[in-house]
Design a protein around this nucleic acid. Structure first.
Lengths: 193, 193
DNA sequence: CCTTATCTTGAACATACATTCAAGATAAGG
DNA sequence: CCTTATCTTGAATGTATGTTCAAGATAAGG
Protein backbone atom coordinates (compact mmCIF):
# COMPACT_ATOMS: atom_id res chain seq x y z
CA UNK A 1 0.00 0.00 0.00
CA UNK A 2 2.74 2.37 -0.95
CA UNK A 3 4.12 3.42 -4.30
CA UNK A 4 7.78 3.56 -5.27
CA UNK A 5 9.21 7.04 -4.85
CA UNK A 6 12.08 7.20 -7.29
CA UNK A 7 11.84 8.30 -10.89
CA UNK A 8 12.56 5.23 -12.99
CA UNK A 9 13.81 7.16 -16.02
CA UNK A 10 16.17 9.23 -13.88
CA UNK A 11 17.56 6.14 -12.21
CA UNK A 12 18.03 4.25 -15.47
CA UNK A 13 19.64 7.19 -17.25
CA UNK A 14 22.04 7.75 -14.37
CA UNK A 15 22.94 4.06 -14.33
CA UNK A 16 23.25 4.15 -18.12
CA UNK A 17 25.80 6.96 -18.02
CA UNK A 18 27.81 5.22 -15.32
CA UNK A 19 27.92 2.00 -17.36
CA UNK A 20 28.93 4.01 -20.43
CA UNK A 21 31.79 5.66 -18.60
CA UNK A 22 33.18 2.81 -16.53
CA UNK A 23 31.93 -0.30 -18.31
CA UNK A 24 29.86 -3.12 -16.87
CA UNK A 25 32.43 -4.73 -14.60
CA UNK A 26 34.01 -1.54 -13.27
CA UNK A 27 30.72 0.14 -12.42
CA UNK A 28 30.38 -0.92 -8.80
CA UNK A 29 27.10 -1.13 -6.91
CA UNK A 30 28.66 1.55 -4.72
CA UNK A 31 28.87 3.85 -7.74
CA UNK A 32 25.39 2.92 -8.93
CA UNK A 33 24.09 3.62 -5.44
CA UNK A 34 25.61 7.10 -5.58
CA UNK A 35 24.50 8.12 -9.07
CA UNK A 36 20.97 6.76 -8.74
CA UNK A 37 20.53 8.08 -5.16
CA UNK A 38 19.10 4.69 -4.34
CA UNK A 39 19.96 2.37 -1.48
CA UNK A 40 20.97 -1.22 -2.23
CA UNK A 41 17.65 -2.58 -0.97
CA UNK A 42 15.68 -0.44 -3.42
CA UNK A 43 17.87 -1.39 -6.36
CA UNK A 44 17.62 -5.08 -5.58
CA UNK A 45 13.86 -4.84 -4.97
CA UNK A 46 13.32 -3.11 -8.30
CA UNK A 47 15.86 -4.82 -10.57
CA UNK A 48 16.92 -8.03 -8.84
CA UNK A 49 20.64 -7.49 -9.17
CA UNK A 50 23.35 -5.57 -10.98
CA UNK A 51 22.72 -7.42 -14.22
CA UNK A 52 19.01 -6.63 -14.02
CA UNK A 53 19.74 -2.95 -13.55
CA UNK A 54 22.16 -3.06 -16.46
CA UNK A 55 19.62 -4.68 -18.76
CA UNK A 56 16.98 -2.14 -17.70
CA UNK A 57 19.47 0.69 -18.35
CA UNK A 58 20.20 -0.85 -21.76
CA UNK A 59 16.49 -0.83 -22.56
CA UNK A 60 16.27 2.83 -21.61
CA UNK A 61 19.29 3.55 -23.78
CA UNK A 62 17.69 1.80 -26.72
CA UNK A 63 14.46 3.77 -26.18
CA UNK A 64 16.33 7.08 -26.09
CA UNK A 65 18.32 6.22 -29.20
CA UNK A 66 15.14 5.19 -31.02
CA UNK A 67 13.57 8.50 -30.10
CA UNK A 68 16.60 10.41 -31.40
CA UNK A 69 16.56 8.34 -34.58
CA UNK A 70 12.84 8.85 -35.18
CA UNK A 71 13.04 12.57 -34.47
CA UNK A 72 15.82 12.94 -37.03
CA UNK A 73 14.38 10.82 -39.82
CA UNK A 74 10.77 11.96 -39.47
CA UNK A 75 11.48 15.51 -40.57
CA UNK A 76 10.71 16.73 -44.07
CA UNK A 77 14.24 16.55 -45.43
CA UNK A 78 15.46 13.94 -47.85
CA UNK A 79 16.65 10.76 -46.25
CA UNK A 80 20.16 11.15 -47.60
CA UNK A 81 20.62 14.65 -46.22
CA UNK A 82 19.22 13.47 -42.88
CA UNK A 83 21.66 10.57 -42.94
CA UNK A 84 24.55 12.94 -43.62
CA UNK A 85 23.41 15.06 -40.69
CA UNK A 86 23.02 11.97 -38.52
CA UNK A 87 26.66 11.08 -39.15
CA UNK A 88 27.79 14.52 -37.95
CA UNK A 89 25.65 14.05 -34.84
CA UNK A 90 27.52 10.82 -34.18
CA UNK A 91 30.88 12.55 -34.73
CA UNK A 92 29.86 15.28 -32.28
CA UNK A 93 28.88 12.66 -29.71
CA UNK A 94 32.33 11.11 -30.04
CA UNK A 95 34.10 14.29 -28.98
CA UNK A 96 31.65 15.90 -26.55
CA UNK A 97 32.43 15.81 -22.85
CA UNK A 98 35.74 15.28 -21.14
CA UNK A 99 35.48 11.53 -21.57
CA UNK A 100 34.57 10.24 -25.02
CA UNK A 101 30.93 9.23 -25.23
CA UNK A 102 30.69 5.80 -26.68
CA UNK A 103 27.78 3.59 -27.63
CA UNK A 104 26.61 1.65 -24.59
CA UNK A 105 25.66 -1.33 -26.74
CA UNK A 106 28.91 -1.80 -28.66
CA UNK A 107 31.07 -0.98 -25.65
CA UNK A 108 29.20 -3.51 -23.53
CA UNK A 109 29.06 -6.30 -26.10
CA UNK A 110 32.79 -5.92 -26.60
CA UNK A 111 33.34 -6.18 -22.87
CA UNK A 112 31.02 -9.06 -21.96
CA UNK A 113 31.59 -11.20 -25.06
CA UNK A 114 33.19 -14.31 -23.59
CA UNK A 115 31.83 -13.58 -20.11
CA UNK A 116 28.05 -13.40 -20.28
CA UNK A 117 26.21 -14.93 -23.26
CA UNK A 118 22.84 -13.76 -21.92
CA UNK A 119 23.74 -10.08 -21.95
CA UNK A 120 25.43 -10.60 -25.32
CA UNK A 121 22.24 -11.98 -26.86
CA UNK A 122 20.23 -8.99 -25.66
CA UNK A 123 22.79 -6.51 -26.96
CA UNK A 124 23.11 -8.32 -30.27
CA UNK A 125 19.35 -8.08 -30.69
CA UNK A 126 19.40 -4.35 -30.03
CA UNK A 127 22.23 -3.75 -32.48
CA UNK A 128 20.56 -5.87 -35.15
CA UNK A 129 17.41 -3.79 -34.71
CA UNK A 130 19.49 -0.66 -35.19
CA UNK A 131 20.95 -2.03 -38.42
CA UNK A 132 17.45 -2.95 -39.56
CA UNK A 133 16.16 0.56 -38.89
CA UNK A 134 18.94 1.99 -41.05
CA UNK A 135 18.17 -0.55 -43.78
CA UNK A 136 14.55 0.63 -43.80
CA UNK A 137 15.59 4.24 -44.30
CA UNK A 138 17.99 3.28 -47.08
CA UNK A 139 15.30 1.23 -48.77
CA UNK A 140 13.00 4.24 -48.64
CA UNK A 141 15.74 6.42 -50.13
CA UNK A 142 16.23 3.88 -52.92
CA UNK A 143 12.48 3.71 -53.52
CA UNK A 144 12.40 7.52 -53.70
CA UNK A 145 15.22 7.44 -56.25
CA UNK A 146 17.32 9.65 -54.00
CA UNK A 147 20.29 7.67 -55.23
CA UNK A 148 21.03 4.50 -57.13
CA UNK A 149 23.24 1.64 -56.01
CA UNK A 150 24.24 -1.78 -57.22
CA UNK A 151 23.86 -2.93 -53.62
CA UNK A 152 20.75 -3.84 -51.65
CA UNK A 153 19.51 -1.66 -48.79
CA UNK A 154 20.52 -4.46 -46.44
CA UNK A 155 24.06 -4.54 -47.75
CA UNK A 156 24.28 -0.76 -47.63
CA UNK A 157 23.00 -0.70 -44.06
CA UNK A 158 25.55 -3.28 -43.03
CA UNK A 159 28.32 -1.18 -44.52
CA UNK A 160 26.92 1.90 -42.81
CA UNK A 161 26.79 0.39 -39.31
CA UNK A 162 30.26 -1.01 -39.83
CA UNK A 163 31.40 2.52 -40.59
CA UNK A 164 29.60 3.94 -37.57
CA UNK A 165 31.12 1.32 -35.26
CA UNK A 166 34.47 2.06 -36.88
CA UNK A 167 34.22 5.82 -36.37
CA UNK A 168 33.26 5.34 -32.72
CA UNK A 169 36.22 3.06 -32.14
CA UNK A 170 38.57 5.28 -34.10
CA UNK A 171 37.50 8.21 -31.92
CA UNK A 172 39.04 6.38 -28.96
CA UNK A 173 42.43 6.60 -30.69
CA UNK A 174 42.14 10.07 -32.19
CA UNK A 175 39.88 12.83 -30.93
CA UNK A 176 40.64 15.28 -33.73
CA UNK A 177 37.22 16.56 -34.95
CA UNK A 178 38.43 17.13 -38.51
CA UNK A 179 39.72 13.59 -38.90
CA UNK A 180 36.46 12.20 -37.56
CA UNK A 181 34.32 14.38 -39.78
CA UNK A 182 36.42 13.40 -42.76
CA UNK A 183 35.81 9.75 -41.94
CA UNK A 184 32.09 10.44 -41.79
CA UNK A 185 32.22 12.20 -45.17
CA UNK A 186 34.27 9.41 -46.74
CA UNK A 187 31.83 6.85 -45.34
CA UNK A 188 28.85 8.71 -46.75
CA UNK A 189 30.54 9.06 -50.13
CA UNK A 190 31.40 5.36 -50.24
CA UNK A 191 27.78 4.55 -49.48
CA UNK A 192 26.09 6.58 -52.19
CA UNK A 193 28.65 5.94 -54.95
CA UNK B 1 72.60 -16.34 -8.74
CA UNK B 2 69.67 -18.02 -10.34
CA UNK B 3 67.87 -17.40 -13.60
CA UNK B 4 64.14 -17.20 -14.04
CA UNK B 5 62.68 -20.48 -15.18
CA UNK B 6 59.52 -19.59 -17.01
CA UNK B 7 59.28 -18.84 -20.73
CA UNK B 8 58.44 -15.16 -20.99
CA UNK B 9 56.79 -15.42 -24.39
CA UNK B 10 54.63 -18.32 -23.28
CA UNK B 11 53.53 -16.46 -20.17
CA UNK B 12 52.74 -13.26 -22.06
CA UNK B 13 50.86 -15.03 -24.84
CA UNK B 14 48.80 -16.98 -22.33
CA UNK B 15 48.02 -13.79 -20.43
CA UNK B 16 47.27 -12.05 -23.72
CA UNK B 17 44.68 -14.65 -24.69
CA UNK B 18 43.03 -14.47 -21.28
CA UNK B 19 42.78 -10.67 -21.51
CA UNK B 20 41.38 -10.97 -25.03
CA UNK B 21 38.70 -13.39 -23.91
CA UNK B 22 37.64 -11.92 -20.58
CA UNK B 23 38.75 -8.30 -20.77
CA UNK B 24 41.06 -6.49 -18.40
CA UNK B 25 38.83 -6.22 -15.35
CA UNK B 26 37.30 -9.70 -15.54
CA UNK B 27 40.62 -11.48 -15.99
CA UNK B 28 41.42 -12.28 -12.36
CA UNK B 29 44.88 -12.92 -11.01
CA UNK B 30 43.53 -16.37 -10.20
CA UNK B 31 42.88 -16.94 -13.92
CA UNK B 32 46.24 -15.45 -14.89
CA UNK B 33 47.91 -17.70 -12.34
CA UNK B 34 46.28 -20.71 -13.96
CA UNK B 35 46.95 -19.91 -17.62
CA UNK B 36 50.55 -18.79 -17.08
CA UNK B 37 51.33 -21.64 -14.64
CA UNK B 38 52.96 -19.01 -12.47
CA UNK B 39 52.51 -18.35 -8.78
CA UNK B 40 51.51 -14.89 -7.58
CA UNK B 41 54.97 -14.20 -6.22
CA UNK B 42 56.60 -14.86 -9.59
CA UNK B 43 54.10 -12.69 -11.43
CA UNK B 44 54.57 -9.81 -9.02
CA UNK B 45 58.35 -10.20 -9.02
CA UNK B 46 58.45 -10.09 -12.81
CA UNK B 47 55.72 -7.60 -13.69
CA UNK B 48 54.94 -5.62 -10.52
CA UNK B 49 51.21 -6.04 -10.63
CA UNK B 50 48.26 -6.96 -12.84
CA UNK B 51 48.57 -3.77 -14.84
CA UNK B 52 52.26 -4.44 -15.48
CA UNK B 53 51.48 -7.92 -16.73
CA UNK B 54 48.75 -6.50 -18.93
CA UNK B 55 51.07 -3.91 -20.44
CA UNK B 56 53.73 -6.57 -21.04
CA UNK B 57 51.12 -8.79 -22.69
CA UNK B 58 50.06 -5.84 -24.82
CA UNK B 59 53.64 -5.37 -25.95
CA UNK B 60 53.87 -9.03 -26.91
CA UNK B 61 50.60 -8.71 -28.80
CA UNK B 62 51.92 -5.73 -30.71
CA UNK B 63 55.12 -7.62 -31.52
CA UNK B 64 53.21 -10.63 -32.82
CA UNK B 65 50.92 -8.44 -34.90
CA UNK B 66 53.87 -6.59 -36.35
CA UNK B 67 55.44 -9.90 -37.30
CA UNK B 68 52.24 -11.03 -39.01
CA UNK B 69 52.00 -7.70 -40.80
CA UNK B 70 55.62 -7.74 -41.98
CA UNK B 71 55.37 -11.35 -43.14
CA UNK B 72 52.33 -10.53 -45.23
CA UNK B 73 53.52 -7.31 -46.79
CA UNK B 74 57.11 -8.36 -47.44
CA UNK B 75 56.19 -10.97 -50.02
CA UNK B 76 56.53 -10.34 -53.73
CA UNK B 77 52.87 -9.64 -54.41
CA UNK B 78 51.46 -6.22 -55.15
CA UNK B 79 50.55 -4.23 -52.10
CA UNK B 80 46.89 -4.03 -53.07
CA UNK B 81 46.51 -7.76 -53.49
CA UNK B 82 48.28 -8.29 -50.18
CA UNK B 83 45.94 -5.80 -48.58
CA UNK B 84 42.94 -7.62 -49.96
CA UNK B 85 44.32 -10.84 -48.56
CA UNK B 86 45.05 -9.16 -45.24
CA UNK B 87 41.37 -8.21 -44.95
CA UNK B 88 40.29 -11.80 -45.44
CA UNK B 89 42.77 -12.84 -42.74
CA UNK B 90 41.06 -10.38 -40.41
CA UNK B 91 37.63 -11.71 -41.35
CA UNK B 92 38.83 -15.24 -40.63
CA UNK B 93 40.17 -14.16 -37.24
CA UNK B 94 36.75 -12.72 -36.41
CA UNK B 95 35.00 -16.08 -36.81
CA UNK B 96 37.65 -18.58 -35.76
CA UNK B 97 37.32 -20.34 -32.43
CA UNK B 98 34.22 -20.76 -30.28
CA UNK B 99 34.55 -17.27 -28.88
CA UNK B 100 35.08 -14.43 -31.35
CA UNK B 101 38.70 -13.34 -31.48
CA UNK B 102 38.87 -9.61 -31.12
CA UNK B 103 41.72 -7.14 -31.23
CA UNK B 104 43.30 -6.87 -27.77
CA UNK B 105 44.10 -3.19 -28.34
CA UNK B 106 40.65 -1.95 -29.40
CA UNK B 107 38.82 -4.18 -26.93
CA UNK B 108 40.99 -2.93 -24.09
CA UNK B 109 40.92 0.75 -25.00
CA UNK B 110 37.15 0.58 -25.20
CA UNK B 111 37.03 -1.01 -21.76
CA UNK B 112 39.52 1.13 -19.85
CA UNK B 113 38.66 4.48 -21.45
CA UNK B 114 37.36 6.48 -18.49
CA UNK B 115 39.05 4.18 -15.98
CA UNK B 116 42.77 4.23 -16.64
CA UNK B 117 44.32 7.04 -18.69
CA UNK B 118 47.78 5.49 -18.48
CA UNK B 119 46.77 2.25 -20.17
CA UNK B 120 44.74 4.27 -22.65
CA UNK B 121 47.77 6.28 -23.69
CA UNK B 122 49.83 3.16 -24.31
CA UNK B 123 47.06 1.53 -26.34
CA UNK B 124 46.43 4.69 -28.33
CA UNK B 125 50.12 4.79 -29.23
CA UNK B 126 50.04 1.20 -30.43
CA UNK B 127 46.93 1.77 -32.53
CA UNK B 128 48.37 4.94 -34.03
CA UNK B 129 51.48 3.00 -34.99
CA UNK B 130 49.28 0.42 -36.69
CA UNK B 131 47.51 3.14 -38.66
CA UNK B 132 50.88 4.58 -39.60
CA UNK B 133 52.16 1.22 -40.85
CA UNK B 134 49.11 0.92 -43.11
CA UNK B 135 49.64 4.47 -44.37
CA UNK B 136 53.19 3.54 -45.34
CA UNK B 137 52.00 0.59 -47.39
CA UNK B 138 49.33 2.69 -49.07
CA UNK B 139 51.89 5.37 -49.88
CA UNK B 140 54.09 2.73 -51.46
CA UNK B 141 51.16 1.46 -53.51
CA UNK B 142 50.44 5.01 -54.67
CA UNK B 143 54.10 5.54 -55.53
CA UNK B 144 54.04 2.28 -57.52
CA UNK B 145 50.95 3.51 -59.38
CA UNK B 146 49.06 0.41 -58.24
CA UNK B 147 46.03 2.67 -58.02
CA UNK B 148 45.17 6.33 -58.09
CA UNK B 149 43.19 8.24 -55.51
CA UNK B 150 42.16 11.79 -54.80
CA UNK B 151 42.95 11.10 -51.15
CA UNK B 152 46.29 11.04 -49.36
CA UNK B 153 47.78 7.83 -48.05
CA UNK B 154 47.12 9.13 -44.55
CA UNK B 155 43.45 9.70 -45.24
CA UNK B 156 43.14 6.33 -46.93
CA UNK B 157 44.83 4.61 -44.00
CA UNK B 158 42.46 6.32 -41.58
CA UNK B 159 39.50 5.10 -43.58
CA UNK B 160 40.98 1.63 -43.71
CA UNK B 161 41.54 1.26 -39.97
CA UNK B 162 38.07 2.65 -39.35
CA UNK B 163 36.75 -0.12 -41.58
CA UNK B 164 38.82 -2.77 -39.84
CA UNK B 165 37.66 -1.60 -36.41
CA UNK B 166 34.13 -1.59 -37.79
CA UNK B 167 34.32 -5.10 -39.18
CA UNK B 168 35.69 -6.39 -35.88
CA UNK B 169 32.88 -4.76 -33.94
CA UNK B 170 30.27 -5.83 -36.47
CA UNK B 171 31.49 -9.42 -36.08
CA UNK B 172 30.33 -9.28 -32.46
CA UNK B 173 26.77 -8.75 -33.68
CA UNK B 174 26.80 -11.05 -36.69
CA UNK B 175 29.10 -14.02 -37.18
CA UNK B 176 27.96 -14.86 -40.70
CA UNK B 177 31.18 -15.30 -42.75
CA UNK B 178 29.57 -14.13 -46.00
CA UNK B 179 28.37 -10.87 -44.49
CA UNK B 180 31.79 -10.18 -43.02
CA UNK B 181 33.61 -11.00 -46.23
CA UNK B 182 31.21 -8.76 -48.12
CA UNK B 183 32.02 -5.94 -45.73
CA UNK B 184 35.71 -6.52 -46.33
CA UNK B 185 35.15 -6.46 -50.11
CA UNK B 186 33.04 -3.30 -49.91
CA UNK B 187 35.67 -1.67 -47.75
CA UNK B 188 38.43 -2.54 -50.20
CA UNK B 189 36.36 -1.29 -53.12
CA UNK B 190 35.60 1.99 -51.33
CA UNK B 191 39.31 2.44 -50.69
CA UNK B 192 40.65 2.01 -54.21
CA UNK B 193 37.80 3.80 -56.00
C1' DC C 1 -7.29 7.61 12.40
C1' DC C 2 -5.77 3.24 12.51
C1' DT C 3 -4.16 -0.69 9.94
C1' DT C 4 -1.39 -2.93 6.69
C1' DA C 5 1.13 -3.58 2.80
C1' DT C 6 5.11 -1.97 0.70
C1' DC C 7 8.88 0.91 0.29
C1' DT C 8 13.23 2.81 2.32
C1' DT C 9 17.29 2.54 4.98
C1' DG C 10 21.90 1.19 6.00
C1' DA C 11 24.39 -1.96 8.57
C1' DA C 12 26.03 -6.63 8.03
C1' DC C 13 27.61 -10.68 5.26
C1' DA C 14 30.05 -13.74 2.45
C1' DT C 15 32.83 -13.94 -1.21
C1' DA C 16 36.30 -12.76 -4.57
C1' DC C 17 39.87 -10.00 -5.48
C1' DA C 18 44.72 -8.02 -5.97
C1' DT C 19 48.66 -8.18 -3.42
C1' DT C 20 52.30 -9.43 0.12
C1' DC C 21 55.69 -12.10 2.40
C1' DA C 22 58.40 -15.43 4.71
C1' DA C 23 60.01 -20.02 4.13
C1' DG C 24 61.89 -23.38 0.98
C1' DA C 25 64.30 -24.61 -3.38
C1' DT C 26 67.81 -24.16 -6.75
C1' DA C 27 71.12 -22.53 -10.04
C1' DA C 28 75.61 -20.01 -10.59
C1' DG C 29 80.34 -18.53 -8.65
C1' DG C 30 84.39 -19.53 -6.20
C1' DC D 1 81.08 -28.74 -2.63
C1' DC D 2 79.74 -25.03 -0.22
C1' DT D 3 77.90 -20.41 -0.30
C1' DT D 4 74.82 -16.95 -1.65
C1' DA D 5 71.86 -14.55 -4.38
C1' DT D 6 67.63 -15.10 -6.54
C1' DC D 7 63.71 -17.56 -7.83
C1' DT D 8 59.60 -20.31 -6.46
C1' DT D 9 55.91 -21.50 -3.55
C1' DG D 10 51.45 -20.93 -1.51
C1' DA D 11 49.33 -19.51 2.53
C1' DA D 12 47.83 -15.18 4.48
C1' DT D 13 46.10 -10.32 4.35
C1' DG D 14 43.34 -6.47 3.68
C1' DT D 15 40.17 -4.46 0.83
C1' DA D 16 36.32 -4.03 -2.32
C1' DT D 17 32.58 -6.24 -4.23
C1' DG D 18 27.66 -7.86 -4.95
C1' DT D 19 24.02 -9.03 -2.10
C1' DT D 20 20.85 -9.75 1.94
C1' DC D 21 17.87 -8.59 5.60
C1' DA D 22 15.57 -6.83 9.55
C1' DA D 23 14.07 -2.56 11.44
C1' DG D 24 11.94 1.83 10.55
C1' DA D 25 9.09 4.93 7.64
C1' DT D 26 5.18 6.07 4.92
C1' DA D 27 1.39 6.11 1.70
C1' DA D 28 -3.20 4.04 0.57
C1' DG D 29 -7.66 1.66 2.17
C1' DG D 30 -11.35 1.19 5.27
Amino acid sequence: MRTAEFDTEFVLRQAMHAFMQYGYAKTSMQKLKEVTHLHPGSIYAAYGNKKGLFLAATEQYQKDRNQQFTDLFNDQQSILSTLKHYLTVIVDECIEGEVAKVCLLTKSISEVEGNDPQICTVLRGNLNAYEHALAEQLQKALDNHEFVSSKSAQQLARFLVMGIYGIRTYALTNQDPKSLQQLADDLFAALVN
